[in-house]
Design a protein around this nucleic acid. Structure first.
Length: 217
DNA sequence: GCCAACGTTGGC
DNA sequence: GCCAACGTTGGC
């Protein structure tokens, strides 16, 4: 029996995000939504992108990763967006994750995800993700959780957020949107909170992007 | 196939 | 470090 959570709408931590601002380099990322990348998926009739007008298929994602060191079974699970940037080609080896071979053989000893259990749960979404789709890179299990940057799936750094969008801020909007019917009203970060890889609607994605231009609420 | 116990996630 | 939430497991 799930009990209603009592700690919602908590105090927004006063700690400054300490973010470094826009990282200069942008890899050109104008990838049109409609281009079905089809990762070796050669079923002809199933270009998922052409199903309906592209409205409610998920082309956007939020991926959680832990930016602070934490040992899990002897392995440090830390992988921040800065770590991603530091990878060769600013791209993380994601195959190890896909195949659930979460062993020392990972490409640089680091990985985006923390445990096999998490991966199993997110497996369906991992499968649904396609190359080039955009995702927010979310820092979890840390002092100030929030969206740190933008990546492309499988998994390449795109850019830092212009400002760090904290969980607290997202939650404020989520709460408001539940009543107003705004774009974040069903955001999986809150409704399916344990999913480490979660789909975003285009409306959610665009709304969150628009927050970059605004003052933190 | 139900459901309580358990383990993990992750905000606080 | 605490503990709510929630996915998984396993007994029945």
């Amino acid at each position: 029996m799930p009990k209603p959570r009592k700690r919602l709408a908590g105090a927004a931590g006063p700690t400054g995000p300490d973010n470094k601002g826009p990282a200069g380099k942008r890899t050109k990322t104008k990838n049109p939504v409609g281009t079905s990348a089809t990762l070796g998926n050669s079923s002809p009739e199933k270009t998922s992108a052409s199903k309906n007008c592209g409205k409610n298929l998920s082309s956007y994602w939020l991926m959680k990763s832990e930016p602070e060191s934490r040992l899990e079974k002897g392995v440090d699970v830390k992988f921040s967006i800065e770590d991603l940037k530091a990878q060769p080609k600013q791209t993380a080896c994601w195959d190890g994750v896909r195949n659930y071979q979460f062993t020392n053989g990972l490409c640089s000893g680091q990985c985006l995800h923390t445990s096999l259990g998490v991966l199993a749960k997110a497996r369906n979404f991992l499968r649904a993700m396609q190359l080039g789709q955009e995702a927010f890179f979310y820092h979890s299990n840390c002092k100030e959780p929030g969206i740190a940057g933008l990546v492309k799936v499988d998994v390449q750094f795109v850019r830092m957020m212009k400002r760090y969008i904290t969980l607290a801020e997202l939650k404020t909007h989520y709460q408001a949107h539940k009543t107003t019917g705004g774009p974040l009203k069903n955001m999986a970060l809150f409704t399916r909170q344990r999913l480490s890889v979660q789909p975003l609607t285009r409306e959610e994605f665009d709304f969150i992007l628009s927050l970059e231009e605004k003052e933190p609420s």
